[in-house]
Computed example of a mutant assay.
Amino acid sequence: MIRPATRADIPTIARLIRMLAEYERLAHEVVFDEEELAKHLFGPRPAAEVILAEAEGAAVGFALFFQSFSTFLGKPGIYLEDLFVLPEHRGSGHGKALLVHLAQLAVQRGCGRLEWSVLDWNEPALGFYRTLGATPMAEWTVHRLTGDALARLARG
């Protein structure tokens, strides 16, 4: 079962994010505060949405996503920030069900694309996405500003 997350799911979302970070070898980068996370997901102007995959009443995976926009298509899109299924539930269709749900939302919302990034070493995920017909965008390089570099640029 796939369902939209609610504010009451914040502890579950936080736990799943931390587990994803461990899997991606990035646990040292997890610094969020749960109240701040709740504000950004369920406050007056949500920055992102979360859907949960459940089995027997317990969350076994999640997808966190937000609206993007394609100037070339002239349409909104959905950017999938994170997708994670507990290791013991992988191969049971939960990841695909989350992606099917996101594709349905994209179509319902008139989006022109659904896109995401994948760590280049994560061959199980890369293989899974290929089976769905996803195309890697090898010619694009992601850039990021955080911390001091972001603050420095903001100061002009």
Score class of each variant (00 low, 15 high):
residue 114 L to C: 04
residue 70 S to C: 10
residue 106 A to L: 05
residue 85 V to T: 10
residue 36 E to V: 07
residue 77 G to W: 11
residue 92 S to K: 12
residue 65 F to L: 05
residue 99 L to T: 02
residue 41 L to T: 03
residue 125 A to L: 09
residue 127 G to H: 15
residue 44 P to Q: 12
residue 15 R to H: 03
residue 137 M to Q: 15
residue 51 I to K: 13
residue 99 L to E: 00
residue 39 K to R: 12
residue 55 A to E: 13
residue 114 L to F: 04
residue 21 A to L: 06
residue 146 T to H: 13
residue 94 H to F: 09
residue 32 F to M: 05
residue 32 F to N: 03
residue 129 Y to Q: 02
residue 63 A to C: 08
residue 30 V to E: 06
residue 97 A to M: 00
residue 64 L to H: 08
residue 64 L to F: 06
residue 66 F to G: 08
residue 119 L to C: 08
residue 15 R to I: 00
residue 147 G to F: 10
residue 34 E to W: 04
residue 116 W to D: 08
residue 116 W to N: 11
residue 135 T to C: 11
residue 131 T to K: 14
residue 15 R to E: 01
residue 25 R to P: 00
residue 81 E to P: 11
residue 21 A to D: 02
residue 5 A to K: 02
residue 63 A to Y: 01
residue 150 L to Y: 15
residue 47 A to H: 10
residue 124 P to F: 10
residue 98 L to Q: 03
residue 124 P to R: 10
residue 27 A to F: 05
residue 140 W to N: 09
residue 22 E to V: 07
residue 145 L to C: 14
residue 76 P to A: 14
residue 71 T to H: 08
residue 45 R to I: 06
residue 11 P to R: 12
residue 117 S to Y: 01
residue 152 R to K: 15
residue 142 V to H: 14
residue 123 E to L: 14
residue 2 I to L: 09
residue 32 F to Y: 07
residue 55 A to M: 07
residue 151 A to T: 15
residue 35 E to R: 12
residue 123 E to M: 13
residue 44 P to M: 05
residue 98 L to F: 01
residue 94 H to E: 00
residue 38 A to Q: 04
residue 77 G to N: 11
residue 95 G to C: 00
residue 125 A to F: 07
residue 42 F to K: 09
residue 109 R to P: 02
residue 103 A to I: 00
residue 107 V to K: 13
residue 41 L to F: 11
residue 127 G to Q: 14
residue 138 A to N: 13
residue 135 T to N: 14
residue 41 L to N: 02
residue 20 L to S: 09
residue 49 E to T: 11
residue 48 A to G: 09
residue 82 D to N: 14
residue 129 Y to T: 01
residue 1 M to G: 14
residue 70 S to I: 04
residue 54 E to D: 12
residue 43 G to Q: 10
residue 102 L to E: 01
residue 83 L to N: 04
residue 29 E to V: 01
residue 25 R to A: 06
residue 21 A to F: 08
residue 68 S to D: 11
residue 156 G to K: 15
residue 121 W to L: 04
residue 95 G to D: 00
residue 31 V to Y: 11
residue 4 P to A: 15
residue 26 L to V: 01
residue 18 R to G: 10
residue 56 E to V: 10
residue 58 A to S: 15
residue 91 G to N: 05
residue 130 R to L: 02
residue 82 D to R: 02
residue 57 G to V: 04
residue 36 E to H: 13
residue 61 G to F: 03
residue 41 L to P: 01
residue 101 H to W: 02
residue 32 F to C: 04
residue 1 M to H: 13
residue 118 V to T: 11
residue 8 A to M: 09
residue 63 A to H: 02
residue 38 A to C: 05
residue 19 M to A: 14
residue 148 D to V: 14
residue 65 F to V: 03
residue 68 S to K: 06
residue 55 A to I: 09
residue 109 R to M: 06
residue 115 E to M: 09
